[in-house]
Amino acid sequence: MKQILHTMIAAFTLFIIMHPDKASGIKDPDLSLKSEGAVLMDAKTGRILYEKNGHASMYPASITKIATAIYAIENGDLDEIVTVSEKARNAEGTKVFLEEGEQVPLKRLIQGMLINSGNDAAIAIAEHMSGNVEQFSKDLNEYLLKDVGVEQTNFVNPSGLFDPDHRTTAADMGKITKYAIKNEQFAEIFGTKSMEWEGETWQTTLLTHHKMLKQRPYEGVTGGKNGFVSQSGFTLVTAAQKNGLSLIAVTLKSPNDSGTYNDTEKLLDYGFGHFETKEIAPAASLVNDKKEPLQLTEPIPYTKGKDEKVTTKINRLNELVVHGEDGQELASAKLEPAIPEGQGISQNLQENKEEEDKYFSSHFFLAAIAAFLLVTFISGTLYWQTKR
């Protein structure tokens, strides 16, 4: 008899735990990426939608220039004239062939650095902003820590040339890019496909080095930067937008150039195929558990799986919080006091609540049936046992 009871209890427990409709969150698929590190990030909220060794410390190569560019844009005067030094003129690697003493507007140097990956332009920017490369690196790291919120990044030069102490992670590069593309001037340069370059000794048309903007187009790509040094492998940062969803794909340490683009396409295909961005609008007032009227001051965007159920609630701090199936916070915003209007709850929240109630009601109903059958079986068994 005890064995029968144990079997039934185990079966009941498994039913509750393993029922296929149970919320289980969004799980990373196997995308078979060749890159050793990768992150797919929602550009609006910062939610990481996929990662592979996303927090592993690696060498970034020239995608470092994303950080140098946004720092210079936010802390410099783009119309200011920069005088090129001998050190900048003699920079290693890719150049825009600046000459010592040449005078170039700061904005043009940023363009030459991002579009053509000019290491000479990067050094000229650093020296102009902070006096020398060493001080610029300190200023840049402090800026990235305080303003961007990186956690594992340390840059020792503005260009990404190899140094064992020049490191970052895919997750941090996603954060840096998310921050940078909010700046209109950065976003414009980041997405430039070509521009005329009239240097003192070099006149040409600069073409972006990011193939998904030119030679290998991908629908929705709005900007990007590639990188390579032998120690880092091939690195790539890509921004894309489609159907209201904005994504950032970062790949680090790919064994070859085609691999990093293949991986980026897989990341973007996965993102656009499985996620969507929704928004809670501040159109109607809200109420907390004390029935106090509250309101949003601006819309709250959140990104979720297309089939993912979300929950919304107002906490004790009068913050509206959106959670995904796995309990991850997708978005939050501080609510302000408001005059009650209508029913005191927005349509978005009401729909979410109804969906949540329906979800849990269906599971409660199934659990109740299972419990009833279990109790009936046990009662009947005990009854017949006593009759023997």
Rank of each mutant, 00 (worst) to 15 (best):
K175V: 02
A43H: 05
S130E: 12
I176Y: 00
T177N: 14
I48P: 09
V96Y: 12
I110T: 03
A56M: 01
A43K: 08
R89P: 10
N53F: 02
I125L: 05
S117R: 06
Y71Q: 14
F136P: 01
A72T: 13
E134F: 13
S117A: 04
V148S: 07
A69S: 13
N90M: 09
E151L: 08
Y59G: 00
E86N: 11
R89V: 08
G118I: 05
E80W: 04
S57K: 13
G76M: 09
A121P: 13
N132L: 10
L140F: 10
G46S: 10
I123P: 00
N53M: 00
F136D: 10
T169R: 00
K87Q: 15
A88L: 10
I70N: 12
E99F: 15
H128L: 08
N116E: 15
I48F: 03
K52W: 06
S159T: 08
V82N: 03
S137M: 05
M58L: 15
H55E: 06
V156R: 14
F162D: 07
I63D: 03
S62T: 11
N75W: 01
N154W: 04
A88C: 09
E74Y: 14
G174V: 00
G160C: 04
P164T: 14
K52V: 00
Y71N: 09
V156Q: 08
L161M: 10
E92P: 15
P60Q: 10
Y71W: 14
E80C: 02
D77P: 06
T68E: 02
Q152W: 02
N119L: 01
L161N: 03
Y143D: 11
H166K: 01
N141I: 04
A61G: 05
L106Q: 02
I125N: 10
A72F: 07
R108Q: 14
N119A: 11
R89N: 14
E92Y: 14
I176Q: 00
I48W: 00
A91V: 04
P164Q: 07
P158F: 07
G93I: 04
A171S: 12
G131C: 02
D147N: 14
L144A: 09
T45L: 07
T94N: 12
S117T: 11
A126F: 03
